[in-house]
Each structure stands twice: as structure tokens, then as C-alpha cells.
Design a protein around this nucleic acid. Sequence first.
DNA 1: CGTATTTGACCTGCGC
DNA 2: GCGCAGGTCAAATACG
Length: 187
Amino acid sequence: MEDQEAPPPPPPPPLPQLPPSLFSPSLLASSSLQPPFIEPQVLPDIDWVSLLSCQYGEGENKAKTLESASVISEEEKGNKDRRKCGRMMKKHSRPRFAFQTRSADDILDDGYRWRKYGQKAVKNSAYPRSYYRCTYPTCNVKKQVQRLSKDTSIVVTTYEGIHNHPCEKLMETLTPLLKQMQFLARF
DNA sequence: CGTATTTGACCTGCGC
DNA sequence: GCGCAGGTCAAATACG
């Protein structure tokens, strides 16, 4: 699995755009960062546009792990055939977004509250994968967190779904900025 | 005491 | 059909 590098990406998108749900205080405003400093990174070979339109990773994709750096391809894997009822039904029927952060902490403060509901050792990785669910009552967003064994300073976070509620910390962070923008807009 | 985390068991999908 | 791996549940435990 180690040698299963992502194929040479075609010209990468000029500037990957994070989906709105990922606009988090930690990623947007360094002022809210708490030590240890988190350095956001976007996977270089991710076609975010295709990803958002659920077209990323056409073709076969066998259970690649996060370790293979083909994080997003799991989206396609999940879309294969998961429409049966049961726990796994809606598994990957929702958009998934992944990005890397260089941090000593596994958990980055993205402004939402998460409840851990599982942890699993994954193959070909020395580090377990942790599963989190948003604690907001009607929000069913999940995320997976895993540290790369290749580079233990990098944490891969995969979000699944879109938050259906505002991010409190985000609003806290953005409110002063918005006020300032409104003030400047008058001129 | 309420909430969050841990962790083993269980379920499901997939490859052989 | 069987075994493996990923994902989830839920009881037990920890923590404030």
C-alpha cells in the first residue's frame, strides 16, 4: 500500500476551495489559533471542484486508506453501492471533504463540537482512526481523524456531510470582521 | 450526576 | 461462502 501513490495529477486546480462547512475559525483566522499552532494544508492533488460535484475519482478504487494519500477517493468508493437500509446505508451518500493539518494535536479546533463514537486501527497505519460526530442535535455531520504514519506530524481530517447549523466560534470570529467590512463599505 | 470517552462486539461490504 | 477490513453501537468507565 505504501507504493500506491496517487497518479500524477493533471494540472491541479488553481486554488482549491474549501466548502463552506469547512470555514472554521482555526482555518480562517489565525487569531483564534491556540498553541500548538496548526498549519492548514490542502491535499495537493485534490480536485475540489469535482469532489464537490461528486465526480472525483472516476474508475475503480479499492479501499484505499488515508495512508495512501488518496483520501478523497473514498468518496467514490462509498458511492458505489450503499443504498441498502441499515447502519451503513447512508454511509458515503454525502459529500466528504478531507484536508491535512500539521499539528501535534489530533483534534483541531474547527469551531464545532464533536463527540467521539469510535476508534479503529486501520491497516497499514501505525495510528488508529478516530470517528467523531457533531453533537448538535439535528446535525449528522461526521469526521474521521487519522495521523499519517509516513509523517507523524500530519493529521488527516475527513469531514462527511454539511453542518445544518451555524458555528458559534466561527460567528464569534467573523462578527468583528463583518462589522468592519460593513463600516468600510460605507465609503 | 451529567456528559464525554473508551473499547470490544457487532454489522456490512467486498475480494477471493 | 468465507474471511478481512472499515464503520458503528453501546455498555463501561472517566472526568468535570
